[in-house]
């Protein structure tokens, strides 16, 4: 299994954990403080989720890359698969941005705009991971 495949799997798990953690915090706050969901202080949890998730991901990449030290880390195939998977994820993320824009024109609370971007961003990372693994196992179109 290449470094990329390993970091993809770890990244998927990390993503799921941080994503669920974020929503758990938000929902718990809404329930315990007895406020509507959109009035919960969401910026802190979201920033933490992104930073901590990102840091852990970078750490896992560093560990796997160090384990594979000395071998050629990534070649043309890895690069192509990575770009292809990222563009697939970007397609999904684009829909999230469009939804966010529509919400902004409808004057929807920023909470929903941000959490939509956050959630669709997470889905995009899932698409990225899925396409990456599939490309390694079954080949790229």
């Amino acid at each position: 299994m290449t470094v990329t495949e390993r970091t993809t799997i770890v990244g998927t798990i990390l993503g799921l954990v941080t994503f669920l953690a974020f929503w758990t915090v938000i929902i718990v706050r809404a329930v315990t403080d007895d406020v509507p969901l959109q009035d919960v202080e969401w910026q802190g949890p979201m920033l933490t989720a992104i930073l901590v998730g990102g840091a852990l991901y970078a750490l896992s990449y560093g560990i796997f890359a160090w384990q594979a030290r000395g071998t050629r880390r990534s070649d043309e195939r890895d690069y192509e698969i990575q770009r292809y998977a990222e563009s697939a994820g970007a397609g999904v993320a684009g829909l999230g941005s469009l939804a966010a824009l529509i919400m902004l024109t409808l004057d929807v609370d920023t909470f929903w705009v941000a959490t939509t971007l956050f959630t669709v961003g997470y889905l995009a990372s899932l698409v990225n991971s899925g396409v990456t693994i599939a490309a390694y196992r079954q080949g790229m179109p």
Partner: peptide, 12 residues
């Protein structure tokens, strides 16, 4: 495609 994550992250 880099424009799309830039848009989403920037907006966030």
């Amino acid at each position: 495609y880099w424009a799309t994550p830039v848009v989403a992250l920037g907006a966030l």
